[in-house]
Design a protein around this nucleic acid. Structure first.
Lengths: 163, 163
DNA sequence: CTTGACTCCGTACCTAGGTACGGAGCTTAA
DNA sequence: TTAAGCTCCGTACCTAGGTACGGAGTCAAG
């Protein structure tokens, strides 16, 4: 549809010719990402750079939209771009166990972060509750806890900034 | 204690004189951070830079160790350096409500992250379980889910990379 | 008075995942 | 043919919280 100029929602302009495939701008719009993001994925080797057909403007197969969506969905599950590159490599025909291994590693990492965040959440919630119920002349319990408190209770060291 | 050279555990060297206070290296060691980290906190205005007593080497009051520990404990509860700067400013005499507001904001943020991580965790755990129980000839359920799946179920968009 | 350890200061680098800029060239509608 | 709008490519910038480097100065002990 819309080979000629008939309706085109997003900022129309010259972007197609008779050649097969779409230009990078159209690809990016279709995948709901920025052109710069597509180029970034190319630099990170998540997307191939098609051979430019003499002259310079490259044409992308429309399946590449699916590949970008794959990337985005994978990110939403917490995978890093490096992991997603592996997943894409394994996508067709790769061993299930390799895929599971990547997923399992990421799952462990997510659970670690979850545990760290839960500790923060409960410590902070406790302090906040304490502060709301403490009498007004006493020093703020939040500040007090942060000020000296060598007691563990609050945290095990170096759990906050774990990747 | 230990005004003279009597025992010094960590890599001795010239670091004190008759002047009051400690040098940056001693301060950093006492607070369990790197010298560069102390300087970084100075640049970020979490720590004051003492006037250098003619000649160049600055002397730090030992209370500054407590200040650095305050920063570290605050970080372990999830506060950003900007927030910690505020907390330090409010530490003595600041309004409790201002302190509570900072803590409450951070708590909300932590809970948001927690919710996002939980969604990731359960989606990923489900897929992994599915994959382990699926028969071997079928395509990997993880890949399948990432490949097309326009159905929501897995995620609400843009929840992954929230700050 | 030399030597070694430290300090001072500015600057660059790191992770992760992009975003932004800018000049040059291509494409196509008018 | 010209102008708009795109593409190409390299490079710099962003967040957050540091870490690393390197030259010059200082300080104290031997």
């Amino acid at each position: 549809m819309s080979k000629t100029t008939s309706q085109r929602p997003q900022s129309g302009g010259p972007a197609r010719s008779t050649a097969a495939g779409v230009t990078i701008g159209k690809l990016a719009r279709a995948a709901q990402v920025g052109v710069e993001t597509v180029r970034y994925y190319q630099r990170r080797h998540l997307l191939a750079v098609p051979h430019s057909a003499r002259g310079g403007v490259r044409r992308y197969p429309s399946e590449m939209v699916d590949r970008i969506r794959f990337i985005k969905r994978s990110q939403s599950l917490g995978f890093s771009l490096d992991e997603i590159r592996e997943l894409l490599r394994l996508e067709e025909g790769g061993s299930r166990s390799a895929i599971r291994k990547i997923a399992a590693t990421r799952l462990t990492n997510i659970r670690d972060k979850l545990a760290a965040l839960k500790r923060m959440e409960s410590a902070l919630a406790d302090l906040l509750r304490e502060c709301e119920h403490a009498n007004s002349v006493a020093p703020c319990p939040i500040i007090t806890a942060l000020s000296v408190d060598p007691q563990d209770v609050i945290f095990s060291p170096n759990v906050a900034r774990a990747a």
